[in-house]
């Protein structure tokens, strides 16, 4: 065990992380027991990594009794695909990859169609397609309440109508640890086992548990262009340079992972988990700042969620 993790073991933080861990495990077991056909949405990011790790804990010595599903927009960082396949293999879980083929046929992408439309077609619509196709009645997501205002009000077990819509004004009261997972017909549940975790908790837990995460989270020299106040990495040759733009090798890392043309990097020298934790605890901007899709207006996320975005 590394030094910081060893120190952390003796501090009150561990009580806090243990409480969160136990709560998440309880939530996952509840889903396994109460729903017919659950799936875990796996987006390859750090939160997904923590969620997958917790699932392995929850059902040990059994493998988690549900598959992983990645809703692939086809614009993820190359490394994310490699990491995804390895992670599923390590966990001994079936991996479903779903791509909105109609979107592909229509050539939808973030550069040609803009971030909002791309996200709508390749992520939101695609997710609904996949849930319908496999008839999942419960889907785990890694969203946290501290991420964004509208998420702060979402239940752990979040009811979705037959059309996957979320009605923020008509949510089921959620008391104690007594989750109501009951649905009928094509209704479903989105379940958020990390609801009560913060970004700092996630990093401290990754450090404590030594959870594998993609190397994009660690600082390295990467080819970067400045665009709309964000640092965008040239991950492949699909991102056309605008006049006057020239890629620059910069020491950067990512705080969240998404479609690479929409995901801003931060300047950083943190090449170890300990350094990332230190940087995160002292961070002055929130992690979602690195996402183009949230920046349009403050209630952007709430709109997307009502439509069925995770």
């Amino acid at each position: 065990m590394n030094e910081i993790a060893a120190t952390m073991r003796g501090t009150r933080f561990m009580d806090h992380l243990d409480r969160l861990e136990n709560e998440s495990i309880e939530i996952m077991r509840e889903v396994a027991a109460e729903t017919r056909n659950p799936v875990m949405l796996y987006s390859v990011g750090k939160d997904s990594s923590v969620m997958l790790h917790l699932a392995q804990k929850a059902f040990h010595p059994s493998a988690p009794p549900f598959p992983l599903m990645h809703v692939d927009t086809t614009w993820k960082f190359k490394e994310m695909y490699r990491f995804r396949d390895e992670a599923a293999k390590r966990a001994g879980m079936r991996l479903i990859v779903h791509i909105n083929q109609q979107g592909v046929a229509d050539g939808v992408g973030p550069i040609t169609h803009g971030s909002a439309y791309h996200t709508q077609v390749m992520k939101t619509e695609s997710l609904k397609q996949a849930l319908d196709l496999y008839k999942f009645d419960a889907a785990f997501g890694g969203a946290r309440r501290d991420e964004e205002k509208s998420r702060a009000k979402e239940r752990v077990f979040s009811f979705r109508s037959e059309t996957h819509a979320w009605d923020p004004k008509n949510q089921r009261p959620e008391l104690w640890n007594l989750y109501n997972a009951r649905v009928r017909g094509r209704e479903s549940m989105r379940v958020f086992p990390l609801s009560n975790w913060t970004e700092a908790d996630i990093w401290q837990y990754i450090l404590r548990e030594d959870i594998p995460i993609p190397s994009l989270y660690f600082a390295a020299e990467r080819p970067i262009v400045h665009r709309d106040g964000m640092l965008i990495m040239l991950d492949d040759d699909r991102l056309p340079l605008e006049p006057g733009e020239a890629p620059q090798m910069l020491m950067v890392r990512f705080r969240t992972l998404g479609c690479y043309p929409l995901t801003g990097a931060v300047l950083s020298t943190a090449t170890t988990l300990e350094e990332i934790v230190r940087e995160t605890l002292g961070a002055t901007t929130s992690e979602r700042q690195g996402r183009v899709i949230d920046r349009d207006e403050a209630s952007a996320m709430e709109k997307k969620k009502r439509e069925g975005y995770f």
């Binding site: 073991r9 009150r12 009580d15 243990d18 861990e21």
Partner: peptide
Amino acid sequence: TPLAYAGAAAGGM
């Protein structure tokens, strides 16, 4: 016993 105190020591949260 590192895991034996979860939730018992409420001081943390």
